[in-house]
Nucleic acid binder design. Structure first.
Length: 429
RNA sequence: UCCCCGGUAGCUCAGCAGGUAGAGCGGGUGGCUGUUAACCACUUGGUCGGCGGUUCGAGUCCGUCCCGGGGAGCCA
């Protein structure tokens, strides 16, 4: 069996394609069948008298998305979408589809999300899924090439990683409540003390009632953690990762970007070094732009967009006030009000794609932090142990896959960047 | 949770100043020997989101609830 993507290599040969009806047209005795098979679109031309009468007649039964097998000779033809077409010699429907609800025209977002299981068949959604696959594999390649070991962290956890209240809770048999992981970081820190350089890549869950173009209840995050790494080290690692992902996509998924009508020019501009701004510098720039923010306030979506629009590549903002960051972040020795942390903002207003920090290495400091954040010490006993047995400076970051994919694809909303989005008030299909 | 917008045919929408419901697409039938979201003709298709109110009369005005979309906070 041949796939549509391979057609060009079979000109003049007789091949069999299997797939689904994408489009049907007829002009009297000549019939056109556009087939999709997951690798592309190809047109089959059916001419009366040039194929068995029963096969020619079978065309009349076909509906959009019916599955079928079509045999024919491959021919180059400028009139065919894609440049190649099939002069059909046989047509065998496998299943006649009921009227397909999605038409090749505009639909409302709600309708498409209700039909996500069918929406995935559209060329645009296929392109997004292929691009996501590329980014996903590129992440693994990147870390593997740099000596990072994949360590799968648990999804069911006994405590909140960052002490927030936005967790999905579930009953863990008769042992009380378990929570769905909102980050693998703490476990990854333990693994980093065993293997040195580690990363994890999996789904994370946040029960926040946020309803924006950047939020999902369930999203995929790739997180890296390395012993003896400092803030400076992860800035470089994060920068290298993003440059690598962009170049892989530009090199390997050019066709998908075309289907998505994504201008590759802004992506081609993504090169080292990324601008690095300290939080205090950001405040100065914001004030100059008329968006004053008092020291100690975290950046909101509007502020992030404002800053990222000032540059043609991702921006790394470091040294946020410790007060608006998580308990495990190391303080800056030069100014203890500040955290050794980084947020990377994607260009073109896509917002934060990476968040990371150097972690607190000292046991007593960490205990003090837990108290400051009103967190109980007991559930973190194992985590505190990491500072009891050969504690070392270490650092890591997490990258949100869907936000990166949305940015690379030029999507308006992250919901299209994941096969089956879990949104506030939407758990179907 | 808060603010804004919306809910009319399978889909996308129109419906003015209250007066018994419309288009395009899709579906169906027929026509056409190279179509490109083909084209032409005919045809099918509705508890106007639910409940209550005003009115002789409500898709239209008012109240309320439900659902969807956009944004905010928080985050990746």
């Amino acid at each position: 069996m041949t796939s549509i993507a391979q057609l060009a290599a079979h000109v003049g040969e007789e091949v069999v394609l299997r797939g689904w009806v994408y489009h049907l047209r007829s002009s009297g005795k000549v019939r056109f069948l556009v087939l999709r098979d997951g690798t592309g679109l190809a047109q089959a031309v059916l001419v009366k008298g040039q194929m068995p009468e029963a096969d020619f007649a079978a065309f009349e039964e076909l509906t959009l998305e019916s599955s079928l097998e079509v045999a024919g000779r491959v021919k180059a033809d400028a009139r065919a979408p894609g440049g190649y077409e099939l002069e059909a010699t046989g047509l065998h429907p496998l299943h006649i589809a009921e009227p397909f609800p999605i038409q090749p025209k505009e639909h409302g977002v709600g309708f498409l999300l209700d039909h996500r299981h069918l929406w995935l068949r559209s060329p645009r959604q296929q392109a997004i899924l292929r691009l996501r696959d590329e980014v996903s594999r590129a992440c693994r390649d990147f870390f593997h090439e740099r000596g990072f070991v994949l360590v799968d962290t648990p999804i069911l956890t006994p405590t909140a990683c960052e002490g927030t209240t936005t967790l999905f809770a579930t009953q863990y048999l008769d042992r009380g409540t378990a929570y769905l992981s909102q980050s693998g970081q703490l476990y990854l820190e333990a693994a980093a003390m065993a293997l040195g350089r580690v990363y994890c890549f999996g789904p994370t869950f946040r029960a926040e009632k946020s309803k924006t173009r950047r939020h999902l209840m369930e999203f995929w995050m790739v997180e890296a953690e390395a012993a003896f790494f400092t803030l400076e080290d992860i800035l470089e690692l994060a920068e290298d990762l993003v440059v690598y992902l962009v170049s892989r996509v530009l090199a390997a998924r050019h066709r998908e970007l075309e289907v998505l009508e994504r201008d590759p020019a802004p992506l081609a501009a993504v090169a080292k070094p990324f601008p690095r701004l300290r939080y205090t510098e950001v405040l100065t720039r914001l004030a100059a732009a008329g968006a004053e923010l008092p020291f100690g306030e975290d950046l909101g979506g509007d502020e992030e967009t404002l800053i990222s629009r000032m540059f043609d590549r991702p921006v790394m903002i470091t040294h946020y006030p410790l007060s608006c960051k998580a308990f495990y972040m190391e303080a800056d020795a030069a100014d203890p009000r500040l955290a050794l942390c980084v947020d990377m903002l994607a260009p073109e207003g896509y917002g934060e794609i990476i968040g990371g920090s150097q972690r607190v290495a000292d046991l007593e400091v960490l205990k003090q932090r837990l108290r400051e954040h009103n967190l109980p010490e007991e559930p973190f006993a194992w985590y505190l142990d990491l500072r009891r047995y050969g504690s070392v400076p270490h650092a890591g970051f997490g990258m949100g896959l869907e936000r990166v994919v949305a940015w690379l694809c030029g999507l308006r909303h992250v919901r299209e960047a994941i096969p089956f989005p879990r949104l506030l008030d939407r758990l179907y299909p």
